[in-house]
Nucleic acid binder design. Structure first.
Lengths: 415, 415
DNA sequence: ACGGGAACTGAATCGGAAC
DNA sequence: AGTTCCGATTCAGTTCCCG
């Protein structure tokens, strides 16, 4: 037998295959009580997967679950844990069952997995999270502390700075003899919280295999790393297309999963040829995007606009249209000439059809741009105007020349 | 009676005071079943607030809640909603009760309020969320759609795409005759999801009051705005120190809250006592001041200056002198006319002798200021220029009139 | 009033075409 | 050759409509 096995059948019979007290982690992703038949096709349209999530009432559903939970519990080691995946539809039912089977005192966490999602036309709030209940078998459970980076708002200096006591015993920052603040060495981060942002398996992800309700490998990775070590045994009683097994293999844990007939083959194929979506958003962090638009936010303070990401030439799309045409805006970047900025804006808006282009000029270079100005309006930033004002000797001359109504947006260039 | 009342007593008697079918929103923040006495002192240590959260067992707790829920429900209008705040300790109990009282079909959302928190050394995951169950009284509930920004990974084209039908009647993206995707104009954003990040320690209401388990005003603001309009009636049956009433007042909703003897005075002071009100105002003031100095930093980005505090007329003193004269600068504040701002700057610089005065104009009012301009230069802010640009119809005319070197700081007035 | 099925929504994401 | 950015695909989607 391999170290990663997808078994055809119902997990209620798991004790026929798996030894008592041998499992380190059970991750369950049972039907959510959606009262629907969940189904999906693979990309090629060659295979069709489905499972029934239809029940007479909640107690039938609860019965089904509790019978399996009772059979699964003895398989867990005393240091083992169980992670139960559900959503708001039946989370309260699951909580009650888990409390009764594993004991309230072994309830560790209510993990919130949340994600950004494409929206729909629902009245009310867009659902964007699912719940994972984390119970241990005993208080002496295995737990690997995972540290995360400090939030962006945390002051880096504060993280690094060492504390000491001054002559009066007050806590202050430690300083070297020459008065410089000392750094306390490597920062270890903040402990992982029970709220996890992990991208939803997006429509284009290669990781998708066509099994309905497929979970991202990244989610399983985190769970497995949290409560198991290498060579530990993971059990997924509702393993569907085998995501848990794929994650376990990647992380060098042994794993067993129970699934339906068609999905057994799918799982074995996945194990032989695993595909994991590495999220660029996760890797770079949301902050890297936000940073990009920080300058825009500052300059456009008070203007209604949509920030534009992932487009090197456009920083914002104004909510206010002009004559039915969208208004694109770019802010000249530091170290970029006005001309470069202008060209970049024009390139990016080339395919956008009829539109208005505005460049916010932030540097005071005085190159003649007249031949490039077609179709672009230039508005100077305040600091640009101020710079000009301060550096120009002949203020007297300007003063007289600028006697026109102040509402005229001056220094504006056009087609 | 006032529009915002803190009533001493148990909300079980709310029907003695409040009319049936009169309430638009009930927000409840009952004890969380922590099995502790929750207590806290105010900053000065002069007052001590506490409430008991000790119960014989869950059914005593459930009984307590359900009795009150049953009495509260008839007070709600048919278009009304109830938001039940709890945490993982008893969320499943609350769900069951709410389902039975308000009906599963009226369950709208499980809202996750999460926050960054300082770590503790507990084994396991750091708890960083609480749950708010949102139920409506009927399917025809009042709901104000709140939009949020698009994800950083959404591209412009996506934001602008229009829908149409293809030859088979299927819904697809609209295309022009030459196959290009058509713009539908900027859209409004993404609907608010059920996962809310709101800082736990809100500087506004923080610790000032000393009431345990106090909630941030920001959280209440969002809830109130989501399901009520101005003049609607908000009821908080466990209003503690009155955060809900404060938020309701701020948003011009009427509000009633039930609380304990010590807290009733606290709440009424917060609402009615001019001292307390002033302190709230002060905080608002401080915040808008911070806001403002932030704006100054942004506008003066790249300019060398010394910020000026404690002077209502001057925001900055530039490090760059002109002809040996100091340069004072003021940024027009929100809600202040250009004229007021001008006068304020002049008053504050009257005693400063020979100097240069610059006013950064941020609003687009077009009053003729010529007779007040003596000794002051006016430079428009970028957003002001942009506003002008967007609202001015005759862009063509300006275009031709502005054919002069861009380095000229235009729209500048002088002595 | 329901249950069920058909029609429709709309943005998040990344692959791969285009530059 | 690298980088940018277009657009296809998806819905533990929802709404609507009909019998």
């Amino acid at each position: 037998m391999g170290l990663h096995r997808a078994i055809l059948g119902d997990c209620i019979d798991a004790d026929k295959t798996i030894d008592l007290n041998s499992v380190d982690l059970i991750y369950l992703d049972p039907p959510f009580f959606t009262q629907k038949i969940q189904q999906q096709k693979n990309r090629e349209g060659t295979k069709h997967f489905s499972f029934h999530d239809l029940w007479a009432n909640d107690s039938e559903y609860a019965d089904y679950l509790v019978q399996r939970l009772l059979r699964l519990k003895p398989l867990l080691k005393d240091t083992g844990s169980i992670f139960f995946h559900c959503d708001k539809t039946a989370s309260h039912i699951a909580r009650l069952l888990l409390d009764s089977v594993f004991g309230e005192e072994n309830f560790c966490s209510e993990i919130i997995w949340y994600f950004k999602r494409w929206s729909n036309s629902k009245k009310g709030l867009l659902s964007a999270h699912q719940t994972i209940f984390f119970y241990s078998k005993s208080r002496d459970f295995k737990f690997n502390k995972i540290m995360q980076e400090y939030s962006a708002s945390t002051n880096v200096d504060q993280i690094m700075q060492k504390r000491a006591r001054d002559s009066k015993g007050k806590s202050v920052y430690a300083r070297s003899e020459d008065g410089k603040i000392l750094n306390g060495g490597a920062k270890k981060g903040v402990p992982l919280s029970d709220v996890w942002e992990i991208p939803f398996l997006n429509p284009k992800a290669k990781e998708r295999v066509g099994y309905p309700t497929q979970k991202p490998v990244l989610l399983l990775n985190r769970i497995i790393e949290l409560v198991t070590d290498e060579d530990d045994l993971v059990l997924d009683p509702f393993c569907g297309s085998g995501t848990t097994l794929v994650a376990a293999k990647q992380l060098k844990r042994r794993a067993i999963g129970y699934t339906s007939e068609d999905a057994v083959n799918l799982t074995n194929e996945r194990l032989a040829n695993p595909v994991v979506t590495t999220s660029t958003l996760m890797e770079n962090g949301r902050e890297s995007y936000n940073q990009h638009s920080k300058e825009a936010r500052e300059i456009l303070n008070g203007i209604d606009y949509t920030p534009v990401h992932r487009n090197s030439g456009i920083d914002a799309l104004l909510k206010h249209e002009i004559d039915g045409r969208p208004v694109f805006l770019r802010i000249q970047k530091q170290g970029e000439t006005t001309l470069d900025s202008l060209v970049s804006l024009k390139r990016s808006t080339k395919t956008k059809g009829e539109c208005i282009r505005i460049l916010i000029k932030t540097s005071a270079d005085s190159v003649d741009l007249s031949e490039y100005l077609e179709g672009v309006y230039i508005i100077p930033s305040t600091s640009c105007l101020l710079h000009d004002f301060l550096s120009t000797g002949d203020r007297q001359k300007q003063d007289t020349s600028s006697q026109k109504p102040s509402k005229t947006p001056a220094d504006l260039k056009s087609p």
